[in-house]
Amino acid sequence: MRTMKAIRAFAWVAALSVFVAGAAEAQTTPKGDAKAGLTEFRKFGCYSCHGIVGQGTLRDGPRLNAAALGYPAVLAQLRTPRYEMPAYTTVQISDSGVADIYAYLSSVPKGPDPKSIKALQ
């Protein structure tokens, strides 16, 4: 059941990402502090559903790392979330805090080429 939740959430967020692409171009992604973002990412428990490096989990949260989503999509999902994720308002995390988290997630490398990983063959 949760698989579907995750898939639906991911599909929605992906769709939203496309939808807001135009806005994203117009809206400058704020410059965040990746180091502070890592701390925030863990402090606010984002890792618990999205994985320790934002890789996503099957049932609980989509992948966020390696610029999987644009900043506007991340901000929109935080402030006015769809599906089961609760809203994180400015009372809880400021826009600059979100920018830091986004900077951290964008800094996470994509990972090695799967073809280079022996255990994946």
Binding site: G51, V53, Q55, K110, G111, P114, I117, A119, L120
Partner: peptide, 25 residues
């Protein structure tokens, strides 16, 4: 799916994908 697990390959603490695939190997 292989591409997805690569995103978490070097994570520490060890990701579930890494643990599971090292075991599989």
């Amino acid at each position: 799916l292989r591409q997805q697990v690569a995103y978490e390959w070097d994570a520490s603490p060890i990701s579930s994908g890494r643990m599971v695939m090292e075991l599989w190997d």
